[in-house]
Each structure stands twice: as C-alpha cells, then as structure tokens.
Amino acid sequence: MTSFLTAFFSGTAQGAIYALVSLGLVLVWRGAGVVNFAQMGQAMFTTYIASQMIQNNYSYWTAFVVALICGAALGALVDLGLMRPLTSRKNSKLLNSQSMRTTIPVIASLGILGVLKSLAGIFWAGEERGFPSPVAPNAIKIGETNLAITGFDLFVIGAVFITLVLTTIFFTKTGMGLAMRASALNPEVTRLSGIKVGSVRTLGWAISGTASSLAGLLVTPRTNLSPNTLDLLLIVGFTAAVVGGLSSLMGSVLGGFILGYVISFVNVYSAPENVFIAILVFLLLALFIRPQGILGSKEVRRV
C-alpha cells in the first residue's frame, strides 16, 4: 500500500511537470505547425540563468520570476528570429515540398538545441550542479507517521495547478485567448477578422517558453542541472503530447499525467532501467491504437 501511494503521489508530481512540457509543445504545434525540439533546451538555459542569480545572492523567487520572463523572451525570439522567416519564405524549391515544410523547422529547432547546449556548457561549465527548491524535499508528517507525499511534491502540483487554471482562463475568457485558438484553427479567417496572426503566433511561442521554463525550475531540484538533463523531459513530454493528441491542449495535460503515472509505477514496481522501454512501448501502442490521441480530433492528421 505504501509503495502504491508513493508511486501515485510521485506520479502526480512528475506528471504535472510532464503536463507543462507537453502543453508547451502542443501550444507551438497548434499555433505554428512546428514541434519545437529546442523547447527544453530553452528551459535548461533559463534554469541556468536562475541558478546563476541564486549564486549571486538573489532570492529564489526573484530568480524564479526572471527565469519565467527569460523563457517567454527566448520563445518569442526563436519565433521572430528563426521560425517566422523560415516558414514565410516563398519561392524556395525545397520548401515547396510538402514533407520538407514540416521537416525543415524540426531541423532548425535541433540546431537551436545544439547551440543552446553548447552555450550553456561554455557559460556555466558542463558539470552537473544542484538547483534549490523553496520547499524541503522531506516527507510530510502527520504526528509520527510519514505520508507518502513530500512538501516539494505539493509545491510542484500546486504550481502546475495554478498555471493550468491561469491558462484555461486565458484561453476561454480573454480575447487574446480566443484569437490564439482561432488562429490555430483557421489562420485565414482569423486574419480576415483583422487579427495579426503573426503576433498571436509569437505570443504562443512565448507562453510555451514560459511553461517549459517553469517545468525546468520544477524538475531540476530533483534531477540536478546540466546541459543535457532536460533532454529526457522533452522526450517524455513529446510522448505525452502524442498520447493526448497533438492538437488538444486538454489532451496534452491529460497525457502528461498519464505518462507521470506510467513512469512512476514502472519505477516503483519494476526497475528504473525499464523506463525508456516503457515510454517507447507506450508511444508505439498509442500510435497504433489511437493515432489521433485521447482527445485529438481525427481530421487533423488526415494526410
């Protein structure tokens, strides 16, 4: 029973982080038709910025906020500096090819990932370093009994919960949220409604950058920080996004939690070295059984 609860709570906390990563991926995929493989590279970079600030005696929360802002800026920069010129280029023989139009941005995002990793290595040396958390990672006690959940888990779950609520309000209650949904669904009608689809898209990149930056801040107290630490998070997040249906924001969050439980239960009941294989099997199963994802709509992947 204890191990079940441990797996459940740690799965919820991990799943919350995966949900953020997956949400970030889906935001950009829906808005710009790009799967951003550099996403967690951006998060790694902003987490290093936070780490540097904490070393320079700034408070955790100052560093936290600065990292989120940098995440937004970096996301917007990637769109403005690279993706927008790349996808709007006309008269390119290569980009006239259907498959290349999706392939080239993927390659570009890999280039950014490589550059960000190398820069992080140059600026902050390659070795692993710890990253603080504002809450002690001890199990919560009621009287003398240890609960299966730690204070840090609660912090992670709380932070993600707040983010998800804010995101939901943004998308369903604000005009900008409506504009963002509309431009993802039908850019032409949205432009004809006088909305600057390009700017909306850049905002999507910025929100995605913020979400993944938060994921970086939440995961590194457990995994430590190095240029490569967050690679795994990207892969799990991608799997979660596919499981949820790349086109659905709700689905991506759901997929994140499902992956959290899968990984956590494999860790507790099987062995940690089985985790990658579990992810691969899960991904392939998801693709074969329900390629449109749990909440994805079928028409999106018709061709």
Partner: peptide, 20 residues
C-alpha cells in the same frame, strides 16, 4: 509504424527510439 506517421510525429518517435 512510420507509414502512419508524418513529419514531427516520426521525428519524435524515432527520437524516443534512439533513447530506448
């Protein structure tokens, strides 16, 4: 498996495979 996938799906799936 890949025949059912295109673009970024395939990229991501093969990346997972590279790790697994």
């Amino acid at each position: 498996a890949a025949a059912r996938l295109s673009g970024p799906y395939l990229a991501g799936t093969t990346l997972v495979m590279a790790l697994a």
